[in-house]
Write a protein that binds this DNA or RNA. Structure first.
Length: 691
DNA sequence: ACTACGCCCCTTTTT
DNA sequence: GGGGCGTAGT
């Protein structure tokens, strides 16, 4: 039974009476085992599994815990446990209530916000350069996650340098929300906001809500936990591992637990079973430079001989990666037990290259890159139009593959189809309302009045030779004067695809239809030709053929993914919600520090520990947060820890000093004194480190 | 006015 | 390697 293997501290927490329970669990102290045991305890005591809600930071973590429970309970029990991230659980529960949202990638919503922003004039107010759409979106997201009500007031407080724009930004964001609604889009935050809204009128009656990585909970998520209003709470976290400040993580939530819940009970797990004494000493030496929120006495649970952590310094970046690859090649450990951890994703490519040169495979997150590739994006956009017929981006991105149709024409085509389809481009293509007024707006730009409504529209008979569907020939979109034959054919292919998949909900069918469509063949042709175009402008046909094969192979990977999500709406949301967690490859684990949280490996390399890279000294982050990142990174190691950096990057032509954390760990000489922001650091000679 | 193409910029971390 | 911007061409 899962409870029998626990130590005294873990057992006390796992068997705590129902109530508001907080477990402070330092790195490697058996946090996951305790949560698993807690759930087992609840089920054994008669709590129905469907009344247990487990909120984790990644879906993978949730799956793993449910999998572990699978050793003790049959699948029909574990299957009923509601487990996942705040977002995926909200997605699931909203669907149960019949309030399904259709998610759109943040990158697309940033583009939408940018377009709203660009229509405003800021120069009348100030010479100050306004924030970019992407940055404002991130700020707005932070605002949503902070649970504040008045954007302008909140913004003025937190972004003083642009406080004079607070009112315009607030107005822009209001318009952005209108546009989002008009196009049928929802984002990550909407999922949580709508969930909380739904909870005001609908109770799910959970017996206990368990929250993993509680230190990374932000205010919106915190309010959601309260909105569930469960009989019992079981929150597990560690302040020293709070690394999501950029996402609004509010340490006050874990810090004020006992103040907010008057019958709160606090447990602590202090014995580390994961790492050797020397690794823990190093981790603690560094993290002690952060102000303590609560006293911590981490006890070493492992005894015996151990290798001390090593620092490797190299002259050049690639020498570092190559040496690590060599060390790994010689290591007897299974590759899955080895991890290379870095602060920025930009380190990953070089490392992967070095590993490959020595024939070592690696596993890294491939989901985002996969989804961002043009060939997959094109398919996702096609599905987007089906599941959300208002999807302007899906339509625009698709149309841009038609030669002769650019951004302006694509927009016009969308507007016409939307008008004759009563806001649905699918209707606009398949059953246009011929009586609808699609010649709406006068051209704002034509000051001379040169273009009247009539001159913009031509008879569709000009496409007579194309052999288009007779029904489609009546479609007003064909009257649009800037549409050429190629464009008309392309639009008719979009129509053919929609005709085939309309009303279909089986994701495999929809994706396969898209892949096999004439339309996609057209898109693939454009992509393959581009990829096979040589410097002199000629197209290498053999290479184009190869490119096509690669594209279709990749598309097949997407088709395979439908197996796990048979409903097309679920599948579509999964692409936004879960694809980032997908992994590709086999072998050595390549991870960002953020992605490494909660994992452990026999041998860990933390690379690029150079001042500026790690800590990453950009605007939003604090040294304390970077220090916690370092703490998380080194505490992933069970037996052996190797730290490294290179003094020079020949590609970027930058020289590096050792990371201040190496200095704090006593492994390197400081380049120029202590680090700003560290409390109680040794020696404070002068300024910080250059570059 | 719009589209297409070539050149230069930058590149945190996640759901 | 991709997005933004300036320029040439329709």
């Amino acid at each position: 039974m899962p409870l029998s293997k626990l130590n005294k501290e873990q057992l006390a927490a796992a068997t705590a009476p129902k109530g508001k329970n907080l477990v402070i669990a330092s790195a490697g102290t058996g946090k996951t085992s305790t949560i698993v045991a807690r759930i087992a305890h609840l089920i054994q005591r008669g709590t129905p599994p469907e009344r247990i809600l487990l909120l984790t930071f990644t879906n993978k973590a949730a799956q793993e815990m449910v999998l572990r429970l699978g050793k003790f309970f049959p699948p029909q029990v574990t299957r009923k446990i509601c487990a996942g991230t705040f977002h995926s659980v909200s997605n699931l529960l909203l669907k149960r209530l019949g309030r399904t949202l259709i998610l759109k990638q943040p990158s697309e919503l940033k583009t939408l916000l940018k377009s709203v922003l660009e229509r405003r004039s800021f120069s009348r107010i100030s010479d100050l350069k306004p924030y970019s759409g992407a940055y404002l979106y991130d700020i707005y997201s932070l605002f949503c996650n902070a649970c504040e009500k008045d954007f302008a007031a909140w913004f003025s407080r937190n972004y003083e340098e642009q406080a004079e724009f607070a009112e315009i930004y607030a107005d822009v964001l209001g318009e952005f929300e209108e546009q989002k609604a008009a196009f049928g889009y929802a984002d990550f935050n909407d999922l949580l906001l709508k969930m909380r809204e739904a909870l005001a009128t609908h109770k799910f009656d959970f017996a206990e809500v368990l929250v993993d990585e509680y230190q990374d909970t932000n205010s919106l998520q915190g309010s959601l936990i309260d909105a569930f209003d469960a009989e019992s709470l079981f929150c597990v976290g560690d302040f020293d591992q709070s690394i999501y400040a950029f996402n609004g993580a509010n340490i006050g939530i874990i810090g004020s637990f006992s103040l907010r819940y008057k019958d709160a009970k606090i447990f602590a797990l202090n014995t580390n079973y994961r790492s050797t004494a020397k690794i823990l000493e190093l981790a603690n030496r560094v993290i002690e430079n952060n102000e303590r929120l609560y006293p911590k006495r981490l006890e070493v649970g492992r005894a015996g001989e151990c290798k001390p952590p090593r620092l490797l310094v190299f002259d050049e970046l690639f020498a570092q990666y190559d040496n690590i690859a060599q060390t790994i090649a010689q290591s007897p450990l299974p590759k899955e037990e080895v991890a290379i951890i870095f602060r920025n994703n930009s380190s990953a490519d070089g490392i992967e290259m070095a590993l490959r040169e020595r024939g070592i495979g690696c596993k890294r997150r491939g989901g985002v890159e996969f989804l961002e590739s043009r060939e997959i994006k094109a398919l996702v956009d096609l599905v987007g139009i089906l599941v959300n017929p208002k999807d302007i981006f899906g339509m625009l991105h698709t149309l841009e593959y038609a030669r002769g149709v650019g951004a302006a024409a694509a927009r016009e085509i969308y507007e016409i189809l939307s008008a004759v389809g009563h806001k649905s481009v699918v209707c606009g293509l398949l059953e246009p309302d011929l009586t609808a007024n699609y010649k709406q707006k006068e051209r704002v730009n034509s000051q001379m009045g040169l273009f009247s409504d009539f001159s913009e529209f031509l008879p569709s008979s000009r496409f007579g030779a194309l052999g288009l569907d007779a029904e489609f020939m009546k479609n007003p979109v064909l009257n649009y004067s800037n549409l050429n034959a190629n464009g008309a054919l392309f639009v008719s292919q979009i129509r053919d695809f929609l005709l085939q998949v309309r009303g279909q909900v089986v994701s495999e069918f929809v994706i396969k239809s898209a892949i096999n469509s004439k339309l996609y063949a057209n898109i693939v042709d454009v992509l393959a030709t581009k990829r096979a175009t040589l410097k002199n402008g000629n197209v290498d046909l053999a290479r184009a053929d190869e490119a096509k094969k690669k594209i279709y192979a990749k598309a097949e990977v997407l088709a395979q993914m439908t197996k796990r999500h048979p409903n097309i709406y679920n599948f579509y949301n999964f692409l936004t919600l879960g694809v980032g967690e997908l992994e590709g490859g086999n072998g050595v684990n390549l991870l960002t520090v953020h992605a490494s949280k909660g994992l452990e490996f026999g041998l860990v390399f933390v690379v690029d520990l150079a001042q500026g890279r790690f800590p990453n000294l950009k605007m939003m982050s604090s040294v304390e947060e970077e220090r916690r990142l370092f703490y998380v990174a080194v505490t992933r190691a069970k037996d052996e820890l190797v730290l490294s950096y290179a003094k020079y990057d020949k590609i970027r032509k930058v020289e590096y000093m050792p990371s201040c954390f190496l200095v704090e760990a006593g492994m390197a000489e400081g380049g120029g004194g202590s680090v700003a922001g560290s409390s109680g650091g040794s020696g404070s000679s002068g300024s910080g480190v250059e570059n």
